[in-house]
Design a protein around this nucleic acid. Structure first.
Lengths: 98, 98
DNA sequence: TTGACAGGCAAGTGCTTACTTGCCTATTGT
DNA sequence: ACAATAGGCAAGTAAGCACTTGCCTGTCAA
């Protein structure tokens, strides 16, 4: 699975996109913080394990990095893999609609 | 399924992304043209029906429009649904890495 | 008119994936 | 020390999805 495939597969799930939303508001959230935030702010009722597995996928895609400190694991957003996505299929000058 | 979900699901498959690539090079291709292009330029060995179903998904996501003329169905790319994708999760001014 | 061409429709199949369940490890506060 | 906290690991399940198979419709050229 190449990088692009991992990236787009990661973005395909609404829960994972909500996680990126949550992390874009504030970096360094723990798994439990993200679980609470999903339940409240995003109205999702996902279990801890489900969220953890989603974070695994996001980490594989390079969108999330983890750093462990003591018994806490903090999650940070990395938007770098999204950069090539903006270039692709985006040539408004080349195709003027009407 | 909301719009964003349809969009990201559509982008999740590599064959569908290749179809968007092919259509971004030239609009107005027929199903058989796209089949041939997938086989040659993109090295994919997908059947006609498979490609057709992929185009259904892309059409649902609003990324491809179809126009029928006689016995031909021409396919056009529409990048408009991709626009909100550029804004989301990308605020480089708000998060300066390092 | 008849056959070839371009495409549509729908059911079935097998793999992927999101989620659960159950248990385990490590760290911290009292 | 011990219980609570924070999280990891792995197998099982059920739904989704990509693809095939088979057949049908509409269009055009000879």
């Amino acid at each position: 699975m190449d990088d692009a495939d991992a990236l787009f597969k990661a973005l395909a799930d609404p829960t994972r996109r909500a996680l990126l939303d949550a992390l874009s508001e504030r970096d360094g959230q723990t798994l439990f913080e993200l679980c609470a935030r999903m339940a409240t702010a995003h109205g999702l009722t996902s279990s801890r394990q489900a969220i953890s597995q989603h974070l695994d996928v996001l980490e594989t895609a390079g969108l999330v990095t983890r750093r462990r400190e003591g018994r806490y694991t903090f999650h940070d957003l990395d938007t770098a893999p999204l950069a090539p996505l903006r270039e692709r299929w985006h040539h408004p000058d080349e195709r003027t609609p009407r």
